[in-house]
Design a protein around this nucleic acid. Structure first.
Lengths: 197, 197
DNA sequence: GCTATAAGTCTACGGGTGTAGACCTGAGCG
DNA sequence: CGCTCAGGTCTACACCCGTAGACTTATAGC
């Protein structure tokens, strides 16, 4: 009896399969958070069985850690805009507003974190990675007094803005003219860029 | 055979039991989010069976809506500080920093929202209540141009700050001297209080 | 004191979860 | 061609979830 299943999506290739699982995991975690995304769902997205996920990554928790790490490593935005010398609040605001458009899939790492903050284990992983990936780099770029705290507030504003605009879809932010938002956000970021009085 | 159970926590009283369930629900949702808090756990916290929860509130979703509404109604802070005439950024910042201390249980409504944003149904409920409870009131108090957007950004900053400081415990915010944080946050809020250029 | 009725519990269902071990299978090499 | 072993799957377990209907128990009025 011939195989009923149509030819498998991909030839047997451990590396490619692993990558496919990781990509599916990033997508699923960004959409549903740590607790909300199921291993079977992630596996299905990669055309694979749930067991293989655990076989490759050991456990859901370890898979999560790896997925978040990769998502953050890919977050190119809010890198250059913030860390370059002489960055302007308007430039940061414009980048942030652009990247939090309604149905875009941006700031994946942040999104995963926002949707997973309720799980204690996920929160611990996310804190570690945010600190290493973003906080320290931004603080260094900011320089001056209280750089660490200013960087922290900056990250808080970015995360909160994405939460309210993209996840909660608060009308005042989700439906506003992007230029208007930049006009409001720009000066706020400027305050954080300049050293405090 | 005498009753093994020690005397029930509370005499039969529908109103009191309902209130106890609601309080337990607020606490549980704030701790674990919509998806993370189980009906049995909520019921147990009120000294009651899971079925009674559904009997009184119809479903978990309706219980959630009522719990969030009550939590927001009790959020007194960020009421006076923001809505009074001549509010200062420093006053708002001080209130926010004070209320997001490490193991305090503050801004319960916001916390529930942050931990529940991953669930689509919970997000819809939270958006509606935030808009009605906070956004509109703050926007009115702010006045001037782009009041709605400025209020939205303000809420984003508050939510993000609580997320990073209290839930993720980012060291730069969680372990900083409160006065330092006020010094960083105050001018930022001032920017949002004054109408844009 | 007895009864009607509200207050609360018990048992159960169907489904979904992460994980584990045994099993199958197809590609590459001798 | 035939064998080997890495790449994948199947079945299953123990647990938790939200919800439903039937049942029990305590309280209030006569």
């Amino acid at each position: 009896m011939p195989r009923i299943q149509s030819r498998p999506v991909r030839q047997r290739n451990a590396a490619a399969t692993r990558a496919a699982i990781l990509q599916s995991a990033r997508k699923a975690f960004a959409k549903s958070g740590y607790a909300g995304a199921g291993v079977r769902e992630i596996a299905g997205g990669a055309g694979v069985t749930a067991m293989l996920v655990n076989r490759y990554f050991g456990s859901k928790e370890r898979l999560f850690a790896e997925a978040v790490a990769e998502s953050m490593a890919r977050t190119s935005v809010l890198g250059p805009e913030i860390t370059q010398q002489g960055a302007s609040g308007a430039a940061i605001a414009a980048a942030l507003v652009g990247i939090t458009q309604a149905h875009d899939t941006p700031l994946e790492g942040f999104q995963i974190m926002l949707r997973s903050a309720s799980s204690a284990r996920a929160a611990r992983i996310a804190r570690k990675l945010i600190e290493e990936h973003h906080q320290q780099r931004i603080a260094t770029a900011l320089g001056g007094k209280l750089a660490a705290q200013r960087a922290g507030v900056m990250l808080a504003l970015i995360a909160g803005f994405q939460l309210m605009r993209q996840m909660l879809e608060l009308p005042a932010l989700a439906q506003a003219d992007p230029r208007t938002l930049v006009r409001v956000l720009g000066p706020v970021f400027d305050r954080l860029l300049s050293r405090p009085a």
